[in-house]
Amino acid sequence: MPDETRSEDAAIVARGLKKTYRGDVVALDGLDLEVPAGMCYGLVGPNGSGKTTTVKIMTTLTTADDGQAVVSGIDVKADPDRVRKMIGVVDQRSTADLTATARENLTLQGRVYGLKGPELKTRVSELLEQFGLSKDAKRLVKGFSGGMTRRLDVALGLVHRPHVLFLDEPSTGLDPEARHALWEEIDRLVQGQRMTILFTTHYLEEAERYGELISIIDSGHVVATGTPDELKSTLQGDALFVELAGAVDPDLVKRSLAGIEDVSDVVVEDRRLRARADVGARAVPRVLSELESAGIQIDSVTVSRSSLDDAYLLYTGRRFAEVDQAGEEAAAAGAGAKRAKKEGGEGR
């Protein structure tokens, strides 16, 4: 797809974003992102991969050292105030004022965006209702549970009906039921508003369920982008997990399995061996016999269908030379990407 046509109606664009913190901590290392308008877009990646930094830059809280960030067609660095009017933000940690009540928090937030009088009052009551906080509207946030505070955080981000919403781990700290309810609420609010959402999460099933597109990010740049299905289909075949009876030399394991045609992406961590196979059931006997002849004892073997988890592990759990190449090919899916990984694996 030609880049230009997509950029036109992209609500969020990041090009080559770089950010280094004091002490030479590289947070972003050339991050590219493009979120089409009206889409709910997920960002996943391990701790410290740069998700929050990306959100901070896109929401004008901090600036990138290099690269460009554009929200709703407005350059974030050139005109931050206009961007601020368009966006709603829910930061990773709670930002509610603990010394005020829920209603006071929302009212002040609305005022800041220029809401006034009866309109503001209605809007605040509406949000309190929607997020199940009406009953506690007059209590100081200090006394709120984590889940209540989080719901208030999300409501704060929505007061002014933003065009673009940034949610940095909105459901962290919520129990599964509350998490589900929160997302249902977000989903409902977004429908019909054509709101663009960029969210980050550590829950893959959440990314899969609510993200129309997902980017996997690692070490400050995007390593793969695609729909959940596309990302999964990069991983043709099944995932193979073998519990080893004792610690072994990873190279020995890899060497012994190198000869098996349809087994790839072998990773050994402590006493766990992870690999991919075109047809899991057919590969198992050969894997077992190869391991046995190499003198490696095993405890158990599991075969499972590809999940987004596997994609995530594949892209972030191991680093290979052509990580970028693999990332580009991920969207296209298929054997090409797989080949790239195989070569990368050998190249180490």
């Binding site: 929401t59 809280l61 933000v89 709670s94 930002t95 800041v112 965006y113 704060l156």
Partner: peptide
């Protein structure tokens, strides 16, 4: 420390 300043800095205030 409570993130309140960050939240306001992300608004047009």
């Amino acid at each position: 420390n409570r993130g309140v300043i960050d939240r306001f800095l992300q608004t047009p205030i």
